[in-house]
Amino acid sequence: MTPQQLRAFCLSFNASAEEFPFGPEASVFKVVGKMFALSSLDARPLTVNLKCDPDDAVRLREEYEAVVPGWHMNKRHWNTVTVSGLPDAKLRELIEDSYDLVVAGLPKAERLRLDRP
């Protein structure tokens, strides 16, 4: 997945937005103001921080060399994923899981507005 594809996929979710609160080099993808992905799209190798269920986070780190505890994040809930180290389908699944976890933490009215009860 290229940086442009990563950006486009993150922005394909309902109410997602790209912001730059940490400077122009760090793309923060949010849903209703809550972060679900963070990436320096110009970095090599390309990595992305994604929210993850704590049990799944540990399992993914054991299964894939490309998945490590979240850099500068709560390592219990976030993983840093090297994009080139995973098949695109798996990466897309992890991004969607991150989005869904964040949406699940939103107030019910917001979840219903996003069509994700």
Rank of each mutant, 00 (worst) to 15 (best):
T2Q: 07
A43C: 06
L112D: 15
R7T: 00
L11M: 08
K90P: 09
A57K: 03
F13R: 02
D53G: 00
N74V: 10
Y64S: 08
V68Y: 02
V103Y: 08
L106K: 00
E25H: 10
W71D: 15
N14F: 04
K108C: 04
E18Q: 03
R61P: 01
T47Q: 12
E110T: 11
L11S: 01
F22T: 04
R61S: 09
C52V: 06
K51M: 07
D115N: 15
N79P: 02
I95Q: 07
V83K: 12
Q5K: 14
N49H: 04
E65Y: 11
F13E: 05
E62Q: 05
R76P: 05
S12N: 05
A17E: 15
V67P: 01
E18R: 01
P117N: 11
P107M: 13
V67K: 03
W71Q: 15
M73W: 10
P21G: 04
A104C: 07
S39G: 04
F22N: 07
N14V: 08
I95L: 06
W78L: 09
F22V: 05
P107T: 07
P54C: 09
D42E: 14
L112N: 13
V28E: 00
V83F: 09
G23A: 03
E93T: 14
E93C: 12
L94H: 08
V102N: 05
V28A: 05
V32W: 04
R7A: 10
L50I: 13
E18W: 13
L38P: 06
K51Y: 01
M1K: 08
N79E: 09
G23E: 06
N49F: 00
D55G: 10
A89W: 10
A26W: 09
G33N: 13
R59M: 03
L11Q: 10
V83G: 00
V67T: 12
D88G: 12
A17W: 03
V103D: 04
L86F: 09
T82I: 05
T80F: 11
V58F: 03
V58R: 14
L101T: 01
P45M: 10
V103L: 08
C52S: 15
Q4S: 12
S12K: 07
N79D: 13
A8G: 06
N49V: 13
N49W: 03
D55L: 12
I95Y: 08
G85T: 13
E18K: 08
L91E: 01
N49T: 13
L50K: 07
P69K: 12
K90R: 15
V67I: 15
I95V: 15
R44P: 00
P69C: 12
S84L: 13
S12I: 00
P21H: 04
K34F: 10
Y64K: 06
G23M: 11
L46D: 09
R113P: 08
L6C: 05
W78Q: 08
L50E: 06
K51C: 13
V31R: 11
R116V: 12
K75M: 09
E19P: 00
L91D: 14
E96R: 11
K30A: 07
K30E: 01
E19A: 09
D88P: 09
L94E: 00
L50Y: 05
S12F: 02
V83I: 08
P3V: 09
D42Y: 00
E25F: 01
I95H: 01
L114C: 01
S27N: 05
K75D: 06
A26Q: 14
V68Q: 10
E63V: 02
